[in-house]
Amino acid sequence: MKIMLCCNAGMSTSLLVQKMQKEAASRGQDVTIEARPMNEAMDHIDEADVILLGPQIGYAKGDFEKAVNGRCPVTVIPMVDYGRMNAPKILDDIAALLG
């Protein structure tokens, strides 16, 4: 599974990616996670199985949903989980999203 995290510039999100990769590895999950700035993300949208948006760009959710056209889920990371870099909770949310 490939997860793409999108944010404004990619600084705080890259730290979150590291935490999520470590958590996924500890769970034995085969997951690729990458962070991309929003202006670059649309060029790589077809590569992702799940798209996570940082809360600061939650306003763009509709644009991303339109771009993926139902091919994969798009969700906004809750502010509290993003702020706390709560990788376990974010991965749990993805699992619930994928059913």
Rank of each mutant, 00 (worst) to 15 (best):
T32F: 05
R36L: 07
M20Y: 05
Q56H: 15
E47F: 05
N39F: 05
M20T: 02
V68M: 08
I57M: 00
V80N: 12
G28N: 06
K89Y: 10
M1S: 15
E65P: 06
I90W: 13
L15A: 12
M85Q: 09
G99D: 09
V68G: 06
D92S: 12
I33S: 10
I51G: 04
M11F: 14
K22W: 02
L98R: 12
G10W: 09
V80Y: 11
L97C: 07
I90M: 07
D49V: 01
V50R: 09
A24E: 05
R71L: 06
E47C: 02
V68E: 12
K19S: 15
H44Q: 07
K61H: 02
D63V: 14
L5Q: 10
L98P: 01
M1G: 13
V31N: 03
A87H: 09
I94F: 01
Q29S: 08
M85E: 04
M20N: 00
A41P: 02
V50H: 09
T32W: 03
G62D: 11
A25C: 04
L16H: 00
M1D: 09
E65F: 13
P88W: 00
G70N: 13
T13P: 08
P88L: 05
N8M: 09
Y82S: 12
A87F: 12
I51T: 12
E23S: 07
C7D: 13
S26L: 02
P73A: 04
V80T: 08
M38L: 02
G70V: 13
A60H: 14
N39T: 02
D30M: 06
G99Q: 13
V68R: 13
D63Y: 10
C72W: 07
C72K: 15
D49S: 03
I90C: 10
N39W: 00
V76Y: 06
S12W: 03
A25Q: 04
V74Q: 09
H44I: 01
F64Y: 14
D81S: 15
R84L: 15
P37W: 07
S26Q: 02
A24T: 08
E40I: 02
P88D: 02
V68P: 05
I33D: 05
G54D: 12
V68C: 10
M1E: 07
E34Y: 09
M4S: 07
I94R: 02
R84Q: 08
I33C: 11
P55K: 07
A67T: 03
A25W: 00
A87G: 11
A67L: 05
A41I: 02
M4R: 04
A9L: 11
A9V: 09
I90G: 07
N39C: 00
E47N: 10
P78E: 14
L98F: 01
